[in-house]
Design a binder for these strands. Sequence first.
DNA 1: GGATGTGAAGTATTTCACAGCC
DNA 2: GGCTGTGAAATACTTCACATCC
Lengths: 216, 216
Amino acid sequence: MAPNSASRQSRSEVPEVVINRLPQYVRILNRLLDDGTQVVSSQQLGEKLQVTPAQIRKDLSYFGRFGKQGRGYSVRDLLDRLRQILGINSPWNVAVVGVGRLGRAILSYPGFNPDGFRLVAAFDLSSKVVGETVGGLVVQNMDELDQVVGREKISIAIVAVPVEYTQNVVDQLVACGVRAILNYAPITPQVREGIRIRNIDPVLSLQSMTYYINDE
Amino acid sequence: MAPNSASRQSRSEVPEVVINRLPQYVRILNRLLDDGTQVVSSQQLGEKLQVTPAQIRKDLSYFGRFGKQGRGYSVRDLLDRLRQILGINSPWNVAVVGVGRLGRAILSYPGFNPDGFRLVAAFDLSSKVVGETVGGLVVQNMDELDQVVGREKISIAIVAVPVEYTQNVVDQLVACGVRAILNYAPITPQVREGIRIRNIDPVLSLQSMTYYINDE
DNA sequence: GGATGTGAAGTATTTCACAGCC
DNA sequence: GGCTGTGAAATACTTCACATCC
């Protein structure tokens, strides 16, 4: 009977749907900064994001007043504020569990580091893989999880293990003190209150698109 | 000024948020069917999905009356109906574009086929990869895209190319007649009305979780 | 008795529209 | 003049609660 706590505004006042949009604002602002754009209006941001300007202004208003009337937002200032709000102004250490094909792709992906995440450890269940170097990291045994998570101050894990091991791995991670998990297996692992989990599930995404392309 | 058309109920009456939940119902029902469960109530489904029973009943009511009062839902019947509604009762042919590490992981993933999707073609921009066999498919040159998409009746594509090529690849796919795209690059490609697109973006997922684990 | 299907009630989220400020 | 910030209005979504039916 417990309702979907993940889609419910938890402690704070800010709706989760707003939080989920902020990273997209950060991404666009980063691009504008690279382009040398100094100031941007909610109108312009909205065009780039396919969102109404009112929504952007309303979203930002949950956190303060960042703009200048008649002008717009300073790209650099707004970016800094949003990064601070999201907690990505200083980087997070991340562990990857599961070094199969998907885990290797994740470990080799260069997109995490510039955006606030450092992949600092890799683990696998199979001793065949342990000891191998992937993406600059030596794959470690799960026995070492607790120690490494503590030593490296790892709060976030990416889980890319076969579905049948996933809940168990998630439980181990939570027991070690990991507080946010990105799961690639096609289940929704159960976690206790206070632990954040997101699932990446291409099959579910495909299956909802087929509804719209089925009949025409 | 155009509002976010992807999160808006398009042609039909059914809210997109409902459509997005149906694949999860399908997944649970599949599992129940494998377990040999014949009948299930919205109560029981809700427990497994962490959703209120009322929501499940309301969601299903958009499409008809599938249950029996006092009894619940026939697992097999409900599954068949939902698969039909979603358009996954017969399989879709899917092309994968981009055979780097991520593309290889996708091509080797066994989870698409049982759930209504057949990966039938792989393409890459680089001639280094073309001709190689990955996941049982010979990687083809982009020159052949149009012909293969037509011949194989491919309506769905998975795009896993570097971000700088993504918009171009998406445009080519749409030009060939592809109608739904699952994009793994960290941008939101622009597509014309009527084309469905979903993005899988682990960085955005991580960045929204850090908000919640930042302060405690 | 027990569970569905559904209007009505209750929340949440988005958009409007305009006062206020640069 | 132009654009933000924001109450209020509008819309969307969820949950309630109960008549209805097996």
